[in-house]
Amino acid sequence: MIARAGNWAMRAAPWLAAIAVNWIAPDYMSLAASVLTMGLFALSLDLALGHAGIVTLGHGAFYGVGAYAAGIFAIHVWADPLAGLAAATLVAGLVGAVTGALILDTSGLTLMMLTLAIASMIAEFANSARDLTGGDDGLTGIRPSPVLGLFRFDLWGHTAYLYTLAVVFVWTMIAWRILGSPFGHSLDGVRQNAARMRAIGAPVRMRLIAAYALSAAMAGTAGALGAQATKTVSLASLGVLTSGTVLMVAVLGGMRRRWGAYLGALVYVVGQNFAAEIDPFRWMLVIGLMMIAVVMFFENGLAGLVDLLDRRARPSTGGGK
């Protein structure tokens, strides 16, 4: 009973800490919001790549599609942020389902190249559809109305932060629930041995498409949150660099770990911010060294490091969770 309560406290603690940030670090609201957005984006990649084993180098496409969908929706349809979020999630999920159905017959290197190709096509479309997207100048003029008609997006970014936190919380709960379900376990099965999963009668392709679409929808939400917070969308959000960054964050935090995505986002985004403040001309070196150190020494990323410390602290409790 006590252990159970302790377990719950452990699970709630990071969320409570995240709420407290609103008062602890009022000058860092937009940085904190980017940590959450990046964390959600990395969690979406973890779902597709970490669990379902879909090797993708084009996840930035869904982030960008979500960002543009939210922006265009806010400008031309309705400025309500929650409606924009829903629209962006839907559009990104749909794009994920359609492109997933096209490419998920393949695997490995072929699949990787196809995800890259689709991402490039979407980016090129956004570049040429200038009337809709603003092209290389970026999409501007996004003015989200107050959340629920009550809370205005303020200069200090408190509303944006708490709003982001609420959305991220809901999505994370959904993701954890799904990953703990039979469907979630079947994804791990597909990753580990697709042939055997087929042999026991699991609809492997449908499972993969569903996971891909779900992951795309989640990435789309992250993109929409980014667009609403910054009120602009640029072509870079669709780019290869975005896909690369999120992969880096996911690996840094640790794939298939409960808090891995958020841990990676926290260290990457905050580290990047401070390294760039200290030395704006050479900060990339710090990030690169950090990345090399984590990949070389900690198999499971930062989450693996936390495990290691945890085991040292309590040598008697062996085994996994």
Binding site: D136, G138, A229, T230, T232, S234, A236, A276, P280, W283
Partner: peptide
């Protein structure tokens, strides 16, 4: 000085 690394509005 602050570095934006390229076109990156966020």
């Amino acid at each position: 000085y602050r570095d934006d690394g390229g076109p990156d509005p966020a």
